[in-house]
């Protein structure tokens, strides 16, 4: 599954990325394989989303979230 499919309050562990260019940006922000992420909020219009990762809150569009592959 990917990050955009989580429901609020759910967690997952990052395993891989589907897009290399995006993965570089995401990794700099602390989204690394092996990190635990939790979906915290979804914006009122349904996009973007906010997750907790590496101890802080990060927001991204669903489009970016979909490039992050998770395992439960």
């Amino acid at each position: 599954m990917n990050l955009s499919e989580l429901t609020i309050g759910d967690c997952g562990t990052i395993v891989d990325f589907t897009d290399q260019e995006m993965s570089v940006k995401l990794m700099e922000m602390g989204c690394l394989p092996g990190e635990l992420v939790k979906l915290e909020q979804v914006a009122p219009l349904g996009d973007p989303i906010a997750i907790t990762v590496a101890g802080y809150k990060l927001s991204m569009r669903k489009q970016e979230a979909a490039t992050i592959l998770l395992k439960r």
Binding site: M22, K25, L26, M29, P48, A50, Y56, K57, L58, S59, M60, R61, Q63, E64
Partner: peptide
Amino acid sequence: GYFIMELPI
């Protein structure tokens, strides 16, 4: 375009 942004406390 993309949007990746920190939400500060």
